[in-house]
Amino acid sequence: MYNLLKGKKGIIFGALNDQSIAWKVAERAVEEGAEIVLTNTAVAIRMGTLDELAKTTHAAAVIPADATSVEDLENLFTEAQKALGGKIDFVLHSCAMSVNMRKKRTYDDLDYGFLDKTLDISAVSFHKMMQVAKKLDAIAEGGSILALTYVASHRTFFGYNDMADAKALLESITRSFGYIYGREKQVRVNCISQSPTLTTAGGGIKGFDGMLDFADRMSPLGNASADDCADYCITLFSDLTKKVTMQTLFHDGGFSNMGMSLRGMEQYNKSFIPENTDENGKIIYG
């Protein structure tokens, strides 16, 4: 490895199991020389395998925190600094959940109480996290804060539902808070817009297997894996990216700039039934 994070201290939100992007980021951060604190909700810690990750990464602490609770966040940043022996150099926000999606409510039939929860957990929690950290002066000068997003914040994807609104808000918070944090503390705030990735959370999206395959066929480099994403996160936590902030950085094999790929068109053509072809098997359009 490259010791890119040697001497740095970080907090990783949202690791649940070894499929989680946050789990992979925690492992890579430690491989690159960092010391970390792990956090998730108390329920997620009980249901998941975070203690296992804590052992393998020699985490300084596992601190339960509801990312939507200002009180929990205040305790988290206070205790994390004690456990790590200083200010925090990097933070990963990997918190997202839609009750509407879980309850199979379509976008034109949302439960607005559920929508409030989606926005709070998946986006507003990012603002709460940074506001608490800034008031406590918990982030070291030149620190790096990252959140995970998806291209549905910019474009419509069937089945992504109110999570698209949450991701759009998340990216707006990144820009607005990134300006203030950068101006006052030289702290960087960015989003990584990741390929659809096979995680516990991703599996709850309607038609996710199709999204995964479609993105892979459309992307010239193919989908970026959770391990690939972890590598990218490490570069953004490191001192190599000191002047990168307020950005939504696409990490998707080129998907976000594609219209139609050869592989995508070939698969699309295969979907035509015989009635749409002439005697030579060519597709009849229009």
Rank of each mutant, 00 (worst) to 15 (best):
D89F: 04
V124T: 15
A65L: 04
A83W: 00
I88E: 08
T57G: 12
E171F: 10
K82D: 06
D72C: 02
L148A: 05
P64D: 09
K206T: 13
E71A: 12
Y268F: 05
K282M: 00
L212V: 09
D213F: 02
D72P: 09
Y285M: 15
S195F: 03
K206N: 11
K135G: 05
K8Q: 14
T78V: 04
S98K: 02
M101T: 15
D108C: 07
S195I: 06
Q19N: 10
L249F: 12
V187Q: 03
G203L: 14
L84G: 04
L92K: 08
L50S: 08
M129H: 12
P64T: 10
V99A: 13
A164W: 03
K82H: 03
D51T: 13
T245C: 11
T245L: 14
S219L: 00
M97H: 14
A164I: 00
P196I: 06
T78D: 10
V70W: 00
M97T: 07
M1H: 11
Y160D: 10
A22L: 09
K87Y: 03
R263V: 02
N100T: 06
G86I: 07
H127G: 07
C229E: 14
V91P: 01
C229N: 14
A61L: 01
D108Q: 09
N223F: 04
M246I: 08
A54D: 13
Y232P: 00
A224C: 14
N3F: 13
C233D: 12
L5S: 11
M101N: 15
L198R: 15
T277P: 00
A215S: 09
S261W: 06
F13R: 10
T118W: 09
M258E: 12
F13W: 13
D137N: 09
E32G: 11
A15M: 06
I121E: 10
V43E: 15
N276E: 01
K243P: 06
M129E: 15
T56D: 06
T68Q: 12
S176Q: 15
M129F: 04
E71F: 01
G159P: 03
Q81T: 00
S122N: 12
D72Q: 03
R217E: 04
A140R: 12
N100G: 08
K87C: 01
D209Y: 02
I21D: 13
G113I: 05
D72N: 12
A138T: 02
